[in-house]
Design a protein around this nucleic acid. Structure first.
Lengths: 250, 250
DNA sequence: CGCGATTTGTGCACGCCTTCACAAGCGCCT
DNA sequence: AGGCGCTTGTGAAGGCGTGCACAAATCGCG
């Protein structure tokens, strides 16, 4: 994650209505906005017009104070004594996240995981459209996956430029990932989602987010290990009184 | 993510040599240990006996000071003037993460994503073994995926207990996820990896980690939006001094 | 019209994490 | 044996994020 500083740029004149100057948001807040957005969509479909910070926080699984502070960074879109207008807030968050502009996504590497990603409903339903698939394996080229043909990776650079690809998803084996990233960067792609378990080296203006499924399991393993070593002690019978019980919509 | 506090439990007597009492590690450190581990395995296979904090940091994509502080929490396993013994450090990290004990994993929900997860090499290669697959769809029950039969979800509770499942992976649609989590918890599972885009409510002693692929894209989308709005301004040429340029092995 | 109930927005303090900078320790070379 | 270069481990400082607690603002009702 390229840690570039945010600071400076006070900007954000609240007076002038349109949120034009780009708000300077804490990274932690950004990471939570999509969660708020999902919760808002659920609430909206359930017929809610407004929602309190308490209610939205519960639906998103966070503390209400944190939620209010997060939203306050976007501007004042709530009404005291009432709550937040669901539709308005959805629009604002989608605007800030840039979801009002459709961004073209390409997917490189159609192994097990890539195959699943190509058909993952969650992408399309959140406004991301995968417009091209690539693989190095000639035998896969031409195959259609969920309606899209697989192209050879040698076409990646050309197609990425033609289709104005903004985001590249890498689900190749780790050995191939850096080469793919280089091609993407050369083609002007400035955001990469990397599923390959390796470190990518990219210019500073390119954002890389990494998802490593095995790492998640290892973190859970650590906590299992920790818990096991605790229950081995006489204390035992962990409290388990459960604190964070929230109603989940559905 | 069940925010349970880690504080308390002073423990960790440094005097007694063997790292027996469980070390109290910062959460941020834990999240990086798997990355260090992967880098160490790569270095080891490349024939390195020792590695400096600088070298390992580069391979793991982090700052060397951070790496040293992280490792110092495990104890003193480096040699000044020389570096860290690769094999020894691998052993230590694997011990701390509890990877020396094989943990049984089950996977619930065999849609697109679940199918891919069932065959994901990364799990097996990191020592995690998926021992059972479940789905609610009768037509999928009995099908063999990567050698494992799909069982009906009604068997989940019983099998989870029998097989001593430690970690449950949920890749169902969001509407079904909470019910699955409840069954897992009842069966004694204390770690859950949730791929469903929803908030899970679990007792305090259960750890939940969430992976939402669409959220990652939305975060990237935000940065695309930000970058676009910057280049539109005359100031342009974002500083982009950043820092994290590291050579990647491979 | 005024008052109370409700909820937002935020100042503040605290704790975690990161980063710098350097002392302490180790091995090698002379 | 002694000195020198290299690397670890860590004290201290600064920044970021979280959560509390409350003032400000809005609505509804009498």
């Amino acid at each position: 994650m390229s840690q570039q500083r945010h600071g400076s740029t006070p900007g954000h004149r609240p007076g002038d209505g349109a949120a034009q100057a780009f708000p300077e948001l804490p990274e932690a807040t950004i990471a939570r906005l999509p969660e708020y957005l999902r919760a808002l969509h659920n609430l909206g479909e359930a017929g809610a017009d407004t929602v309190s910070s308490e209610g939205l926080a519960a639906a998103a699984g966070v503390n209400s104070a944190k939620l209010r502070k997060d939203l306050s960074h976007l501007g004042s879109y709530g009404t005291r004594g009432v709550g937040y207008d669901v539709t308005l807030l959805i629009e604002q968050i989608e605007y800030v996240l840039g979801l009002d502009q459709r961004r073209a996504v390409c997917l490189v590497g159609l192994g097990n995981l890539g195959h699943a990603l190509a058909g993952y409903d969650g992408f399309a339903s959140r406004g991301f459209k995968i417009v091209a698939l690539f693989d190095a394996d000639e035998s896969k080229v031409g195959e259609r996956i969920h309606g899209l043909p697989v192209r050879h990776i040698s076409d990646l650079g050309r197609v990425a430029v033609e289709e104005k690809i903004a985001i590249g998803v890498i689900s190749t084996p780790p050995g191939a990932a850096q080469a793919v990233a280089d091609v993407l960067v050369d083609a002007g792609v400035t955001s990469i989602l990397n599923f390959a378990p390796c470190v990518l080296s990219v210019p500073a203006n390119v954002d890389v987010r990494k998802v490593d499924l095995a790492i998640e399991l290892q973190i859970l393993s650590f906590h299992e290990h920790r818990k096991a070593s605790l229950t081995a002690l006489p204390g035992g019978r962990s409290a388990a009184t459960a604190g964070n019980q929230e109603a989940v919509g559905s």
